[in-house]
């Protein structure tokens, strides 16, 4: 069976590594991006099955990335999950309006992350 690819976007190297460790351990292929701009470039060059992104990042934040990805035909129906320290209702509403599939607040537990990804991908 072909491995599913996940684009993990976070400016924190430690978070990227923890996400990658969790996802690779569960059998996913992981592409890492350091901010929204980097993610957008990688999204244009690879076809991914899910995007997991932070919000507060330099150059381009997660909400802008979400907005731009949803404009691309190939990313209109791809699950995009926000993984962030932000837990305010306003921010969540903005994410939902911009087309986010789900919202996870950091710190994440590996099992919860894998459960959510499993749910939205199948």
């Amino acid at each position: 069976m072909e491995k599913k690819t996940i684009l993990a976007v976070d400016d924190s190297a430690s978070i990227r590594q923890m996400v990658a460790f969790t996802l690779r351990g569960a059998g996913y292929e992981v592409i890492e991006a350091v901010d929204g701009q980097d993610a957008l470039d990688k999204a244009n060059h690879h076809q991914v099955n899910l995007v997991l992104t932070d919000i507060n990042m330099p150059r381009m934040d997660g909400l802008k990335l979400l907005e731009l990805l949803r404009k691309l035909t190939s990313y209109q129906s791809i699950p995009i999950l926000m993984l962030t320290t932000e837990s305010g209702g306003d921010m969540k509403a903005k994410g939902k309006a911009a087309g986010a599939t789900g919202w996870l607040v950091k710190p994440f537990h590996p099992k919860s992350l894998l459960d959510v990804i499993g749910k939205v991908m199948h």
């Binding site: 430690s14 923890m18 969790t22 710190p107 994440f108």
Partner: peptide, 10 residues
Amino acid sequence: TVTSMQFGDL
């Protein structure tokens, strides 16, 4: 430990 290791970002 993965959960605890995220303290740095916070």
